[in-house]
Design a protein around this nucleic acid. Structure first.
Lengths: 297, 297
DNA sequence: ACATTTACGAAAATTATTTTTCATATCGTG
DNA sequence: CACGATATGAAAAATAATTTTCGTAAATGT
């Protein structure tokens, strides 16, 4: 505990005493962490509402953190604000002040990837992709190599909102088995980013022959592959440094799945809620016993 | 003369009636323009003091600008703050009108996530994380639930540039087996995004007790978890719609791995080249043959 | 020079926000 | 189950911020 002028930023203060905080206070802590740079923009009451706690608890919280009052905290936050925005200048004009590893440039590249992708994707294609995925009897998500993580992500999201989602390739099985029995009501979501193995096109050909639709999410270089897909969503993925970037694809996948969920309506919501409940139950099982031990350092 | 919904930002409003403003009001106008994005952080009184005018004049000023009250102005400013200055407005007035299904908003949110993350991550932490990963004897990449896809991605990149990278949890093995034999030279790269199972903290505690270092990449709400990590890199991941966004984490992981590669120098490059060669050879093998079988089997 | 309008601030009135108080609810413990 | 310790929210009290009122002074027009 420091006696003199305590200039630690608020997030540090929170962390310092986090395990002594109560449940309500932790909710508030989360809200404050999110607001962070803009903290001074909010009244204590607003924060309290967001955290679903009373004003009283909020007021106490900030004192607990070592501030004289909420207003004191707010002033401190405003100080920090200055050091809060030295970045967005960095993309275009402006003195950049973070040299070492070019992290700023790296981010700037990804900002570009996102904006370019947004500019180029057509609403119509997105809608068609959404419709296809929403109407499918079964969905198979395919992704090799660099696209594997993306496929994983897409499968995770889709599984949340609809049944019968399969990830391919599945460890231990050969593609042949997986593809047997594909019908016209089935749909393939294919992640086709660079370094596409030949196998990928082969799969898509099979899918097409089976009369099934496919949504391809790929980089700008996919050409022949794209011809085999029902809809193609292209993403910019140039990386500033060694590796290609997958920020834009992630964003597109996220949007697409939200969109599918909306198309599915109640069914999706219901399923998601069900999954939440199951998660909670599983946590209960594994949790409490281990939780106690945590405090030891 | 008044439109019902005036959504013009404050600087536009000021300019629109600038010549009708009195001297005092112009001083205040200047102050407001300076505060710009942080306007909501200030009370009307504070602005008045800075402009050396009375509260009364300040109050009148904001009404003159078309707001119902200063608080009204403050709220508008806070809106603008969110998707205000940083980047091209895909959403509102921009030249591109890619709006219909919220896709523009979705992307705008991710642009925010990226810039905020960039603003808040410290070079020092990035460097430390890099160093830790570069010096490790073995690297274990851990990620549950939502973090699984990210863990997958991270493992993919790291595998490209250094040996002894393991993904956990491994299907079929229980954590106990995996964690046995962890030593101080081993390192954990932990993806800790929301909906963290309790198990995660338990693992990190074990890791810490074993004297091994850990790099945690997590969302803004990770607090207790972060205490167990050697370095924590926080990413903004608010999603515009149903799901959290992982665009920023992807970007950070990409950067981190590039950075590690640079730290490793020739060894990494050599390894990457080697992998390329192997990929090519496997493609030759697997491609045509399997491809053939694929057609109707 | 006088009347009239306008800008403005001091302070009162109003409104909002924050802090404190106090009554309950909850939890762990003997 | 009773006991104390703790956490919490509702509402009261205290503080702070904003708006309005009103009187003065400066500017403008006659």
């Amino acid at each position: 505990m420091n006696k003199r002028e305590d200039s630690r930023p608020i997030d540090v203060r929170i962390m310092a005493i986090y395990d002594e905080l109560t449940a309500s206070e932790r909710r508030l802590a989360a809200v404050v962490m999110e607001a962070q740079s803009n903290l001074a923009s909010f009244t204590a009451g607003e924060l309290a509402v967001k955290a679903d706690i009373s004003n009283a608890t909020a007021a106490r919280f900030f004192k607990r953190l070592g501030y004289a009052s909420y207003n004191d905290a707010r002033m401190h936050a405003r100080q920090a604000e200055d050091w809060g925005s030295p970045l967005y200048e960095l993309t275009g004009t402006g003195r950049k002040r973070l040299a070492p590893g070019d992290f700023g440039l790296h981010i700037a590249q990804d900002l570009q990837n996102l904006t370019r992708t947004a500019e180029m994707l057509s609403e119509a294609d997105l809608e068609e992709a959404t419709r296809i995925l929403a109407d499918a009897a079964r969905v198979f998500v395919v992704g090799f190599r660099n696209s594997m993580a993306l496929a994983n992500y897409a499968r995770g999201l889709l599984t949340n909102i609809r049944p019968d989602v399969q990830l391919l390739p599945l460890a231990g099985t050969s593609m042949g088995e997986d593809l047997a029995g594909i019908g016209p009501r089935d749909v393939f979501l294919v992640l086709g980013f660079r370094r596409r193995p030949l196998l990928l096109r082969e799969i898509m050909a099979v899918v097409r022959e089976a009369g099934a639709a496919s949504v391809l999410i790929a980089d700008m270089t996919a050409a022949r592959t794209a011809q085999l897909a029902t809809v193609t969503l292209r993403c910019h993925n140039r990386g500033h440094s060694m590796f290609d970037s997958y920020a834009a694809p992630m964003s597109v996948i996220n949007y697409l799945c939200s969109s599918v969920s909306q198309a599915l309506g109640d069914a999706a919501v219901e399923r998601l809620a069900e999954i939440e409940r199951l998660h909670d139950r599983l946590d209960q099982l594994a949790g409490p016993v281990q939780g106690k031990k945590m405090h030891k350092e």
